[in-house]
Design a protein around this nucleic acid. Structure first.
Lengths: 195, 195
DNA sequence: TCTGATTCTGAACACTGTATAGAATCTGGA
DNA sequence: TCCAGATTCTATACAGTGTTCAGAATCAGA
């Protein structure tokens, strides 16, 4: 059975609880103030417990990042479905990206901390790849081209870069972020349609 | 006199040496493996010496970031001067941005680590602002508009975001980065010129 | 009920950043 | 020249960190 029984000694669901605690700590203290021991304290377990389940701090943060990419994937789906045109869908995806970074700063802050993660982790690679594919699909729909088209590849890269750039440069403190992001994404699309 | 005499006790030039050591450590160990004590060790001074000159670890990293923005400014100048058209100049600036991240990964890795820096440091704010102004000027030249034009502001933001996005997403591992970056920047410009 | 595997503990070790007191030296007047 | 005060740097100490390891507690299956 995957789910162990809960006893005084065996927690029964510790990995999940540790993951949630980790996200709490990241939200409250930021990635710089993050600490394995604080995570263990909140889960009320020994300091070595996180290490047992996740190997080391990079392993735990990698798990957080994987969950982050998956959550982002879900948000992309919801954002697209609520729109009428393909281009509106793509813009909505980019806005959802921005929103995720403001609503879940802890998880988001870890997504591209390459040197703090197990950069070669296959699950992490896959989760990030799934997100890239969702974005590429939205770009293909907007440009009315096949997903494997080189123009779609280039445009998709540009859209991701510009959107991520907005959060990395902390543009979210600007009042007119959404308008500026929309401008940027539409500009990339418009440029991509030019001969 | 700003320059103290060098003696066995008084180093004479310690802040500069500490800054250089810090960049070395960042280059070799990355921002995650960075440590004040290692910096002190390389400069062959007591562990508390960096703290005396820079306050704390955030102060030292802030100094590194300021130097980074200034170096980047110089590179922008050189990149622009070697080009014929304004648009070529802008693309060259963006390529220089990419190049800086690959050639000076230690300094670059710290530029936007908001939570590891003294985010409200005035010199840091100014250095970053100077860089933004250089970029905005290049965009204004390329679009043939005044620098205070709203379109220039929006386009400049988009160009910075897309360029920074390329380095943050580690696109530099892609063989065709330069081509993709050029595509992205030109797309933004082309989109900005549309009505 | 027995046995091996799993989960978690407790203690230890080598690090870390930072605060503090004080030593060494510089600076600028008399 | 000498002498204060300010500056620069050292030495030490403290609390906190990640990780390892032996072993205790419990589970799972035969």
């Amino acid at each position: 059975m995957p789910q162990a029984k809960r006893t005084a000694y065996h927690h029964g669901n510790l990995p999940v609880v540790l993951l949630e605690s980790a996200i709490d700590v990241l939200n409250e203290r930021g990635p710089e103030g993050f600490s394995l021991r604080e995570v263990a304290r909140r889960a009320d377990v020994a300091v070595a417990a996180p290490g047992h389940h996740f190997g080391n701090i990079a392993g735990l943060l990698t798990a957080v990042a994987i969950k982050g990419f998956q959550d982002l994937c879900d948000r992309f789906d919801n954002a697209v479905h609520a729109q009428n045109t393909a281009t509106d869908g793509l813009v909505a995806i980019c806005e959802a990206y921005l929103k995720y970074y403001s609503e879940e700063p802890g998880t988001a802050s870890v997504l591209f901390r390459w040197d703090a993660l197990n950069a070669d982790d296959q699950s992490l690679f896959d989760a990030r790849g799934a997100l890239r594919m969702k974005l590429r699909q939205a770009v293909a729909n907007s440009l009315d081209l096949q997903e494997n088209d080189a123009l779609v590849e280039n445009t998709s890269t540009a859209v991701w870069a510009v959107t991520h750039g907005f959060v990395a440069l902390k543009m979210d403190q600007d009042k007119a972020v959404r308008q500026k992001l929309r401008f940027a994404v539409l500009a990339v699309l418009s440029g991509a349609r030019q001969p």
